[in-house]
Design a binder for these strands. Structure first.
Lengths: 138, 138
DNA sequence: AAATTAATGCACTTCCGTTGCATACTTCAA
DNA sequence: TTGAAGTATGCAACGGAAGTGCATTAATTT
C-alpha cells in the first residue's frame, strides 16, 4: 500500500498536514503544476510554505522541477522509478500553448547527444510546444 | 560587405546609434546574451531601450530568443540562413553551469520527434546543461 | 517538562520583463 | 521650410515570481 504518508516517509520527509495536502493535489493533477497553481487551490495557504514544500519534494526526490519555457517553474511527481536529477528530469515535456498546460511525456526517451570534445553534459531539457490532444479536438 | 548598418537595413530596422552598438556587442559576444548583460556593458544605457532594441531584433529576424532554463531570457544573433521562429530557434543550446554562459550549438540538428496522435508540435527547445570546453580545461 | 530541532507564516526584498507616457528625433508631404 | 506624422528614446512605475530573514508554533528528544 503506497498511501500518501508512505510516499513522504519513504523519502525522509515528515508527513505534515500541508505536505500531505500538496502531495494529494499533485497526485490528482496529471499535468505539471506551478507554485501559484498550488497556492490558488488552497484558500488559506501561505506561499512560502508551499514554496518550501515543493522545494523539499524536489530535494527528496518526490517530485521534479520542470522548466517548460514559460518562465514559470513547474513541478510534477516523479514516476515510481524516476532517476531524475534535482533540478531537471530527463524525459520530454510538452507544453500546450493553448490551454497552457505542461505534461510529462515519459515514454519518449531523449536520444543520446554527442557534444564536441571537452563538453560534459549533465542534464538535458527537451520541451516541445504546440497544441495538445484535448485542445486539438475542440 | 556586410557591415553593421547593412545588417540592420537589410532587415528593415533603422540603424540608430543604440541599435548599432547593441548589434556590435552581440556580434563580438560568441555566447548568448541577456538583457542585463547588454545593460551592464553600456554604462549610460537605458534598460527599456535595450529591451526594445533586442525585441525589435528578434521580431525582424536579426537575432533569436533563447530559453536556456536559467529563467533569464537570452539573445543570440541568427546565422546567415537562420530560419528560427520568432520566439525560439531550433538548434541545441548548451548552458554551462560553471561559467553560466549559454552557447548555440548550430551544427547539432534536433531529431524529429513523433508525438502521440492529436498532438501538434510547433516548436522544440533543447537545452543541455553541463560543463563547457573552457571550464573543463581549468 | 525543558531543550533542541523542524515547520510554518508573515513581511519584505530582489530580479526580470514589461508598459505608459512624455520628450526628442526623423521623415515626408504640402 | 515648416509643420505634421511617425518612430525612437528615456524615465518611472507596475506586476509576477523566486527567494530570504525572522519570529512563532509544533514536534522530538532527553
Amino acid at each position: 500500500m503506497l498511501n500518501l504518508e508512505n510516499i513522504l516517509t519513504n523519502n525522509n520527509v515528515k508527513p505534515t498536514a500541508m505536505r500531505l495536502l500538496v502531495l494529494q493535489f499533485l497526485l490528482n493533477k496529471k499535468s505539471a503544476t506551478s507554485l501559484t497553481d498550488v497556492e490558488n487551490y488552497f484558500d488559506k495557504s501561505d506561499r512560502t510554505t508551499i514554496y518550501r514544500t515543493l522545494k523539499t519534494f524536489v530535494e527528496k526526490g518526490i517530485s521534479h522541477k520542470i522548466d517548460d519555457g514559460t518562465g514559470i517553474t513547474k513541478y510534477a511527481l516523479c514516476e515510481e522509478n524516476c532517476h531524475c536529477e534535482i533540478d531537471n528530469d530527463l524525459h520530454l515535456h510538452f507544453h500546450c500553448t493553448n490551454c497552457n498546460e505542461t505534461i510529462c511525456v515519459t515514454d519518449y526517451k531523449i536520444p543520446k547527444i554527442t557534444l564536441s570534445r571537452g563538453y560534459i553534459a549533465e542534464n538535458i531539457n527537451l520541451v516541445v510546444k504546440g497544441i495538445c490532444d484535448t485542445c486539438n479536438k475542440n
